[in-house]
């Protein structure tokens, strides 16, 4: 049987303060378990991009709700890997472009990802939301693995977007 330790699971609103708290708890957990510093850095890196993507892009599907950026974030550990998983609501009209971006990222190898990163950073200006458009590319690069994702329709207007990044230990 596969055993998976959940290090942390958080559901609710995502802000920079929550991001910092989640990062600090996960870091402490990895420190106390004596994780290798190179693995720790990669996990930290992927967590930051994932958490900041959520706080920039998650939509609230109850438009009357005051809580913005509601989402779920999870970090788990198995014998050989860490899993960083997030789930959040996105507008249906942004699903196609997001899916195309993820498919493109997953089609590229290490050097292809490097070129894509350089292309985006050279051309790029920060978006209105302050993103560089590099987060997903960076998650794929730092993890060295394909990004697993899924879109589930919620209603006419929204879909649930889930994303999982795997980081090998050692």
């Amino acid at each position: 049987m596969q055993t998976q330790d959940l290090i942390l699971i958080y559901e609710g609103e995502f802000t920079q303060d929550i991001t910092k708290a989640v990062l600090s708890m996960a870091e402490r957990n990895m420190d106390s378990s004596g994780e290798e510093s190179s693995v720790k850095r990669k996990v930290f890196n992927v967590m930051v991009e994932c958490l900041q993507n959520i706080s920039k892009h998650a939509e609230s599907f109850d438009e009357k709700s005051k809580a913005k950026n509601n989402a779920i974030f999870m970090i788990g550990k198995q014998e050989k890997e860490y899993f960083i998983t997030s789930g959040n609501i996105v507008r249906k009209d942004s699903v196609d472009s997001l899916k195309n971006k993820l498919d493109k990222i997953n089609s590229l190898d290490k050097s292809g990802l490097k070129e894509l990163y350089k292309e985006i950073i050279k051309a790029g200006k920060l978006s209105e939301k302050g993103g560089a458009g590099l987060g997903l590319v960076d998650m794929a690069r730092k993890s060295g693995n394909k990004l697993k994702f899924d879109f589930e329709p919620v209603n006419q207007k929204f879909s649930f977007f889930s994303l999982q990044t795997t980081i090998h230990r050692s």
């Binding site: 850095r41 930290f44 890196n45 930051v48 991009e49 900041q52 950073i121 790029g124 200006k125 920060l126 302050g130 993103g131 560089a132 590099l134 987060g135 590319v137 960076d138």
Partner: peptide, 10 residues
């Protein structure tokens, strides 16, 4: 020690 992608642009 670490920078995020939005910082890398800056």
């Amino acid at each position: 020690e670490y920078f995020n992608t939005a910082s890398s642009k800056l």
